[in-house]
Structures are given as structure tokens and as C-alpha cells.
């Protein structure tokens, strides 16, 4: 765009990257020092033998914790706080879980197909008690495909912001303003990818990830509805209030 200079794109990339690094649940240094220890077989079995509702509650708590960091990420991006509060809420309701899924690749071990969960690295089998194997498999596949792109933290940050500023979410009041932020974020991402001498295909691959993320979130909503039909009281009394607010 002729209206955005390279310096502005660098500045935007810097702000978004800084926000991302400040609000990552696990710092990069922490990850490097972390002993990427897998769950032992009896620990896997212990998760598998939990009652369905207990495992759902545990995952809801973990998701909610991760989402709180995403809210903080959004708040530190100037353009986000300039939006009206309705739109801030709309974007977070629709996009915060998507950003959690993106961030998941930072704590994902591709070789073992395990993800950092509750202190150790867990494979899909540890989540059996949830009763949604297909969704879990898709989430792991998504994380694996994100890892294959080998994005830098800055690229990851910009892609997260791009997804957060989705201008096609329902109920936005100032759609144009969101669109403008999304375009700028897209340009910044493109600019940084070029600067990092990434091949052209990466941006296209990331665009494809947007629909994959939507599908994952829709399926999470479906699974939650099915769970709610059987355990309405568990959600009401034991699930984190923020989780209920976002997905209720």
C-alpha cells in the first residue's frame, strides 16, 4: 500500500512482536531450559481414567489461563485499544482461542507429537477422557503443521495479530477500522517474511491456516455443546467464568 511506509511497517512489527514476547505464557528462555519431559505411561493412564467432566474442567482451566495471556497481548497493541469496546470484545470472543492454537506450536514437540500440558509433554492419548478424539487429533495436526513452517517469534506474533484483527467477524461496529488494522498487520507480516527471505509460499500457507483455525474453533464449540447437553451443572458450577463468557 502506498499509504504505509516501510518504517511504519517495521514499527508495527516491533510493537506486535514486543506485545507477543511480553505476554507469552512461556518465555523462550524458559522453553530452552525446560526439560521436555514426556508423561510417563502411568501418568497418561491417570489422565485417561479421569471422569470425563473432570478432564473437561481441567482443559477449560488451561485454555482460560492461556486466553488471559492473549487478552493481554491484544491490549498491548495500540490499534486494538483504539477500537470501540464492543469490537474489542467481539474480536477476542472470536479470536482468542485461535491465537491459543497458534501459540501452541511454541510448546509442541513435533518429533514426539506431544504438547506441554500441566507440567509435562502429553500426546493425544492423554486426552482420551474428553471424548473428542477427532478434535484432539486435528489440534495436534494443526500444531504440527505450524511447527513445519518454522516461524520466528516475530512472524508468529504478526500472524497472531492478523488472526485477531479479522474484519469478517459478526457483530463488529467499526468494521472498517478493524479491516485497516488487519491490512496493516498483513503488510507488516509480508514485509517481515520478505526481510527474513522466506519463500513466497509461506504467506499462502499461513492464509490457509486461517480457515483451519476457524474449523478447530467451530468444532470446539460443537463439542462443548454436546458436553453441555449431558453435564450442564458441571459447566455452571465448575468451569472458569471467563471460559463460560467466551464460549457460553
Amino acid at each position: 500500500s502506498p499509504t504505509v511506509s516501510m518504517a511504519e511497517l517495521d514499527h508495527l512489527a516491533h510493537i506486535i512482536s514486543k506485545s507477543h514476547l511480553e505476554t507469552c505464557q512461556h518465555l523462550r528462555e524458559e522453553l530452552q531450559q525446560m526439560n521436555w519431559q514426556n508423561l510417563l505411561q502411568d501418568e497418561v493412564e491417570s489422565y485417561q481414567s479421569k471422569p470425563r467432566e473432570v478432564m473437561w474442567q481441567l482443559c477449560a482451566v488451561k485454555i482460560t489461563e492461556a486466553i488471559q495471556y492473549v487478552v493481554e497481548f491484544a491490549k498491548r497493541i495500540d490499534g486494538f485499544m483504539d477500537l470501540c469496546q464492543n469490537d474489542q470484545i467481539v474480536l477476542l470472543k472470536a479470536g482468542s482461542l485461535e491465537v491459543v492454537f497458534i501459540r501452541m506450536c511454541r510448546v509442541f514437540d513435533s518429533q514426539n507429537n506431544t504438547v506441554y500440558f500441566d507440567g509435562k509433554f502429553a500426546g493425544p492419548d492423554a486426552f482420551k477422557a474428553l471424548g473428542c478424539d477427532d478434535l484432539i487429533t486435528s489440534v495436534f495436526d494443526f500444531a504440527k503443521s505450524m511447527c513445519l513452517l518454522h516461524l520466528t517469534e516475530e512472524e508468529l506474533a504478526l500472524f497472531s495479530a492478523f488472526v485477531l484483527f479479522s474484519a469478517d467477524r459478526s457483530w463488529l461496529q467499526e468494521k472498517l477500522q478493524v479491516e485497516k488494522m488487519q491490512q496493516r498487520t498483513h503488510l507488516a507480516l509480508q514485509h517481515i517474511l520478505q526481510k527474513n527471505q522466506r519463500e513466497d509460499g509461506v504467506l499462502n500457507k499461513l492464509r490457509c491456516k486461517v480457515s483451519a483455525l476457524r474449523s478447530l474453533c467451530n468444532r470446539h464449540t460443537e463439542k462443548l455443546s454436546a458436553f453441555r447437553a449431558i453435564y450442564p451443572d458441571v459447566i455452571r458450577t465448575h468451569f472458569p467464568p471467563l471460559y463460560k463468557e467466551l464460549f457460553g
Binding site: Q85, I89, L92, K93, L242, E245
Partner: peptide
């Protein structure tokens, strides 16, 4: 606002 009380609060809180 009432429906999204917590989200509203999180957005209002100054960044920590």
C-alpha cells in the same frame, strides 16, 4: 456489558 463482565474488566484493567 453484563454478558461480558470479566472480559470487560480484563480490558479495563491497566496492563500489568
Amino acid at each position: 456489558k453484563e454478558k461480558h463482565k470479566i472480559l470487560h474488566q480484563l480490558l479495563q484493567n491497566s496492563t500489568s
